[in-house]
Amino acid sequence: MEFHEVVKDRYSCKGFGPGKVPAEKLNAILEAGRLAPTAKNLQEQRIYVIQSEEGLAKIDAATPCRYGATTCVVVAFDRNNTFTYPGGKRNSGVEDASIVATHLMLAAANEGVDSCWLNFFDPDKLAEALGLPENEEILMILDLGYAAEGTKPLPNHASRKPLSETVAYL
C-alpha cells in the first residue's frame, strides 16, 4: 500500500472479529517496530505479544477497550536504558516507545490488519499482572486483528484541522 493511503485510511478499530493475525503478518508488524529509530539507538523498547486466553484475560481486567481483538501488543520501555536530554528534565523512554508503537500501528495498516491504540488502563497494575520487570514501564497496548462486519471508523475520523491551524513557519 502507498504510504499516504496507509496514514489516511487507518483508523482506531473499535470492534474486532474472531480471525487471528497470521504469523507472517505479525512478524512484519513486529519487524517494523524493531526498525524504528530510538535516541542514540538505545532500542529500549520491550514488546510483549499477548494472544493466549490467560494473557487476554489480563488485558480485559486492565481495560474495557480490547474490543475483541485476538492479539494485543504491549509496548514498554526499559527505564534504565534511556537517554537523558540536555537540561535533565526529560529522557527518551516515552518518546522512543511512541515511535516504535507508531511504526507497529502503521505497519499493521500496511499489512491489512486493523488496530487500536489503547492507553485507557493503569500501566503499573498491568505491568504487575503481566509480571514485567520493575525497570520496565508500559506505554500502550495495540489491539490487532480484523474488523468485525459493520465496524467502521468513527464519524469524525476524516475531520482534520487545516495546516494553517496546526503549523507555523517561524
Rank of each mutant, 00 (worst) to 15 (best):
N91D: 10
L144P: 01
G145Y: 03
Y85M: 12
G112I: 10
G131R: 01
A127I: 03
S92Q: 07
I141K: 01
E128D: 11
G68H: 03
A108G: 11
D122R: 04
L126Q: 06
I138V: 09
E136G: 01
V73K: 04
A129C: 09
G87E: 14
L104F: 07
L142W: 03
M140G: 12
E128G: 07
E95D: 13
G88F: 07
C116H: 04
P133V: 00
I138P: 00
E95I: 15
S98C: 15
L118T: 05
T84Q: 09
N81A: 11
P86F: 08
G150E: 14
P64I: 12
A62V: 00
F121H: 02
D143M: 00
A97E: 03
P123C: 10
F83E: 15
A69H: 09
T82Q: 11
N119E: 13
E136T: 02
W117R: 09
A61C: 02
L106C: 07
C72V: 05
Y85W: 13
T63K: 03
Y85Q: 11
L139T: 04
G145S: 06
Y85F: 14
T84A: 09
G145M: 04
N81D: 10
S98G: 15
I138A: 03
K152W: 12
T84Y: 06
T70G: 11
K125R: 11
M105T: 14
S115T: 08
N80M: 15
L118C: 09
G93P: 03
A61F: 01
A107H: 05
T82H: 10
K125G: 06
I138F: 04
